[in-house]
Design a protein around this nucleic acid. Structure first.
Lengths: 350, 350
DNA sequence: TTGTAAGCGTTATCAG
DNA sequence: CTGATAACGCTTACAA
């Protein structure tokens, strides 16, 4: 009964009120003024549910993010920043974000598929991160006609695209930096190869080794899971080698931190005895000891691009899904023994 | 036209379909079976918007979180974990989470008030964090009849309550730990006193000084903003004192990390020359160098408790709003020179 | 145990 | 330029 109140108060029909509220041009100035005033006076707010029901638009975008309490992606600083960018991007266009809850229902019934839930909420689009491209529910979503963009996952479909960092280029850049500093025995602590970033950073590593005419040794490649403990384990394995590396490129800052810890525990100091470069440039990279040289991903841009693409696809049903790659940047700090220190705006800050 | 399909397919009226879908008891087993099967066959999903319209329940809970791109709370590891707990708690009860976007609208019109937006989306409740209790929009929400719980903010109202960590006790515990280690000149790097955690941690600090019969010196109290840079600045100021402290309690881990950096820069080493204890136990505390002794907040529990309270208030309109305090715990690592090392499950991990 | 029908608060179509 | 009125998809009396 709410648009009705406004109608009554301003002495017009509800249809006219609706016109005014939706900025239709064919309303007289005087009428428009009266309606707006009445609406303000009674503090009227249109109900989204009713609008959604008729327009089939909810102005809400879903976000898929693994949030198990054990290894919650939502706690990984990387996703956090992407989320901030995403929120800004969609927010500027008038959308809100709905976090998909991944837990089992209280009634024991497992959660429903992403697609089902997307329809349930009439979501206008969905952003996907931190899940596997091979997950059946993700695939179902990608095949469906809902606008969808993945971050750092090579998901494609009729209305599904992705944005990701230049992982290959970034990895190559890291290796080259190490080489330029005089290192020849450069190891990799990689990410899971079934993830696109994991695979691409390995690819970049190998490619650059090739370019540099350095020998590729499988023993120098240890695979972790992007989290600190795995970096520590990987480093121990590398240190146990008959001829340990003098430099390590870790495919995530968190693993790099773990590696530094293992090296230190082994009596080595970084960067004197071992050079380390990470990937991501999350907060801890600048704050740790030593401050980590790393490949910075523009995480906020990733989120922003995803948001833009989403909005574009929503507005234009036949827009081409994105396949964007966002540039990365080498940030030289102190974990490689370089004397150069690049102070970046925002470093060592919240 | 969708519940109708199910009705047609199963040969009953839409009312009956609705009954089945909502688990009403007064439906024959046979009918129930047929309806359920039909629904499954055509992959039917009820539309939330339509339900919301009639039941006035959206099964969505809003989350207010400052997310400016500059100092986004969403990036603060503390809020992140609380959010994870919150998501789990509400998810288990069948709710989803809507992130309020705080940006200006594209059309230039400023965002509407939290209350307005709550009504717009027909939210069943809202969780509030990272904002000031004095913010007019927050107060408006607190006064309103919407179920509302704040985390680490002492918001109260007819239907709004809060959950927070035992900040006073935690601060006192930190000071006592330092004292037990032999320190007498204990400084505080506090948080903004207009925030409840800032004020309470200062209170706990003073109280414990009193209990311990240590003299309180205003010069030993520096106020920061919970972020690293302010900790660094505060530490410099303390170090410039004629008689600098031998120990520092920082009201956040991030500030503690900043303080350690400043001390190191000043030629001091931690813990040999200066003992530091932080507050929060965010990821970086365990991973930093040296690993930080800190007061651990059970952030996930904070979120979980908030979720429970919210659900309770939603279910029972006359439930009393919560005023919970969650216990904290001293985690001894290496920044205070203690030999004891408590290994906590999950330390140094993702 | 089941069906009919009246809304819920909007938008959109069609006259006027 | 404005007003009736029929949807939108569902829940819920009220009857049967």
């Amino acid at each position: 009964v709410s648009i009705r109140e406004v109608a009554k108060k301003s002495g017009v029909s509800i249809a006219t009120v609706s016109r005014v509220l939706n900025n239709y041009p064919d309303v007289s100035d005087e009428t428009r003024r009266r309606v707006l005033e009445a609406a303000r006076e009674i503090d009227y707010t249109p109900t989204q549910a009713a609008r959604t029901l008729v327009t089939k638009r909810s102005w809400v975008i879903g976000v898929i993010l693994f949030t198990g309490l054990d290894h919650p992606d939502i706690q990984h600083p990387f996703f956090q920043e992407v989320l901030a960018g995403l929120k800004h991007g969609v927010g500027a266009a008038g959308y809100d974000l709905l976090l998909f809850a991944n837990e089992a229902d209280s009634d024991g019934a497992g959660r429903q598929s992403y697609l089902t839930r997307t329809r349930h909420h009439h979501l206008d689009g969905v952003a996907v991160m931190g899940v596997s491209a091979r997950d059946p529910m993700v695939r179902e979503l990608a095949r469906s006609p809902v606008a969808c963009v993945a971050v750092d996952i090579d998901l494609v479909g009729p209305r599904t695209g992705y944005v990701m960092s230049d992982n290959v280029g970034g990895a190559a850049r890291a290796v080259r930096h190490l080489f330029e500093l005089g290192h020849q025995r450069i190891a990799l602590i990689g990410g899971p190869t079934e993830t696109r970033p994991g695979a691409d950073r390995l690819l970049g590593y190998r490619k650059e080794l090739d370019t540099l005419d350095l020998e590729y040794s499988p023993a120098y490649v240890q695979i972790g899971d992007f989290y600190p403990q795995s970096g520590e384990d990987a480093m121990r394995a590398l240190l146990a080698l008959p001829e340990p590396p003098t430099a390590v490129f870790a495919a995530s800052d968190l693993m790099a931190v773990g590696a530094v810890g293992a090296a230190r525990e082994h009596g080595l100091s970084v960067p004197e005895d071992l050079a380390v470069v990470g990937f991501d440039d999350v907060q801890i990279a600048a704050l740790g000891q030593p401050p980590l040289t790393t490949i910075r991903q523009d995480k906020v841009a990733l989120g922003l691009r995803a948001a833009e693409s989403l909005v574009e696809m929503i507005d234009d049903p036949k827009a081409t899904p994105p396949a964007l790659t966002v540039p990365v940047e080498l940030v030289v700090r102190e974990s490689c023994g370089s004397r150069v220190r690049v102070l970046q705006r925002g470093d060592a800050r919240g």
